[in-house]
Nucleic acid binder design. Structure first.
Lengths: 343, 343
DNA sequence: TGTTAGCACTCAAAGGTGGCGAGTGCTATT
DNA sequence: AATAGCACTCGCCACCTTTGAGTGCTAACA
């Protein structure tokens, strides 16, 4: 996988990748010689480019066009060439103020974050909320909403909230609900939501509880209250990919949009990123997102005060401004982590 | 506005509109004569079409193409020509089962509804939740989440829930919060959310309350809890408009997508539809949505048990399958109304 | 008077041609 | 090893012609 290259070849490859990122047009030997202001003639550059093509780092769309980087070239570029830009003062300011804005609720923060990512990168911003299920239980509460209708409210230590309307077999008066709540709050103290769920199920099997009317009802209601829910995911700036020339034709765009409408695909993709620390980069087919469509993904995970982990990042074309987007994703992840931990 | 037309002209106009809806291509005189199986030669049809063009119902993109309907023609078609298809048994089944699916929560139902609308129409489905603000207050509750952090939960009679994380100046223990809740619940009984908001503000000015410590705190917290929130809006099936040939070029699509990212525009547009009963149809520029892009909107409002009103509908190209979409929107609105009223 | 056949006309779309120029690979030269 | 020179390739563009769908007009007809 890793490639042995002379310093000169590396420089030339870097120039080509960056030129192509900037223009989206195949870049030719003379362009490299000129732009790069190196003391090399186009002919020499040609020789080098020819080597790079043999190594599978470049292709030419046809004989007399320039050459464009392959996925392998992007990979190499990202791994060992790219000179990361610093995050500018202004960008930092934007990240910090935007993430703070819009309420202290977890959802609000994350939504704003994904919007900010989109704005700063000019690609699509994406944030996956920390899994509710793995977060620590904090509070459960029941509110009587109407005849045999209860609103169950489940709060995690992150401040994530899950509401669920539950229809019960019999009517319950408010005091009963309070007692149920107290009992369940005690029972689930310190557990994660997943553990709490298991606990409820095991308690329901417990014979002792089956004969206690209040208890058995509390359990059956809370079973519904803690039922599994899909993870929350925020996507912002979808229209921006229309700016990219490579997606100007309808067929490709449609493919992408359809992939994104099924958020499940995204989630599956992103859950992979959760395990590793730091910025993760998936290029083209590595994303396993619509193999024809040439998109890349830059992500980083963030952690919350209660140590659950979420994911944020940017989706753009393979021909993406890595040098600026990588630091932005990195910095944003750090800021969000800090913001969610101090709270 | 309304046009006097002979039966024959009407027939021909109808044929043209429907042909164009089906094919998205300019339709010529001979096509009409043939398809329509009327005992008329293409020459005769030409004469009629010429008249229709003079009346502003048709235009030709250039001399030797066929003719396409103008917005005025669609308007006329919708008002007095279209033969509405019945909603098929299968469609009814889909509408009913889908809307029911996915939890009893208001948001869940509406989200599923917009997805169903999109699926059945093959255009974009859209649902605006009944305004939380005009709904009747049902319950407020405070949960202590951490040091000086309170989760305020506001429930309306529709079962809509608004959570808000509030940072307070001082710490409050759970019992205090319960008392505050009781007091506020009593105070807001029977009011709409908007009225409740006003009530809180006026009570805060009341001198008597300013010296009651608990009271003044309860009010200042609840002020934040009942603060105005944007209306919820569900859009589903955005990718479907990519199927339409008229939107196959990137510039037009971008225009549309950008319009939709600003949900504010949609909301403004849709609030107009709230006032009138029954199915409302906005064609092309009548939507005041991106005047170049030729989209139409078919909406109907629905009502909830507590008599707040929401809006649902379909957005598609002007060249839309009105005959089938109108009944679908109509039927869906009725079903959603029924579903939300019986609950 | 309304309908129709015939015909000349228009014009976009499709296909063909040739020049242009960016870019390549090869080779001889330094 | 680097370069200059040169023949070659091939997409792009501008220009042309052909094709065919469709029109408007007119004269003939019921």
């Amino acid at each position: 996988m890793d490639v042995e290259l002379s310093a000169r070849s590396r420089q030339i490859l870097e120039a080509i990748v960056e030129d192509y990122i900037a223009t989206a047009e195949p870049v030719g030997s003379s362009a490299v010689a000129r732009r790069h202001a190196m003391t090399l003639s186009s002919a020499t550059v040609r020789n080098v480019m020819s080597n790079l093509e043999e190594m599978g780092l470049l292709t030419s769309p046809h004989t007399s066009a320039g050459r464009i980087p392959t996925e392998k070239a992007y990979r190499f570029y990202v791994d060992s060439l790219v000179a990361l830009r610093r995050v500018s003062r202004d960008e930092k300011r934007q990240i910090i103020t935007h993430c703070r804005r819009g309420g202290a609720g977890l959802s609000d923060i994350l939504k704003e974050t994904s919007r900010t990512l989109s704005q700063l990168s000019n690609y699509m911003g994406i944030v996956v909320a920390p899994s509710f299920n793995s977060d620590v239980f904090r509070h459960i509460e029941f509110i009587r909403i109407g005849q045999r209708k209860i609103l169950a409210i489940l709060v995690s230590s992150n401040g994530a909230v899950q509401n669920r309307l539950i229809e019960t077999a019999e009517d319950h008066d408010p005091e009963e609900l309070v007692r149920m709540g107290n009992y369940l709050n005690e029972m689930m103290q310190g557990l994660t939501i997943t553990q709490a769920r298991e606990r409820v199920l095991s308690e329901m099997k417990n014979e002792k509880n089956q004969y206690d009317r209040l208890m058995s009802r509390a359990l059956s209601i809370s079973e519904q209250a803690v039922a599994v829910d899909g993870d929350e995911i925020f996507v912002e700036g979808q229209a921006r990919i229309l700016d990219q020339p490579e997606f100007s034709d309808a067929a490709r765009m449609k493919e992408i949009y359809e992939a994104f409408e099924k958020k499940g695909i995204l989630l599956q993709l992103l859950s992979r990123c959760m395990s590793a620390d730091g910025v993760q980069i998936y290029i083209g087919s590595e994303t396993s997102l619509s193999r024809t469509a040439g998109v890349s993904l830059i992500t980083s995970r963030f952690v919350t005060g209660s140590n659950t982990v979420g994911m944020l990042g940017v989706i753009g074309p393979t021909r993406m401004g890595y040098s600026s987007v990588i630091p932005i994703v990195d910095y944003t992840a750090r800021m969000v982590s800090r913001l969610l931990s101090e709270g």
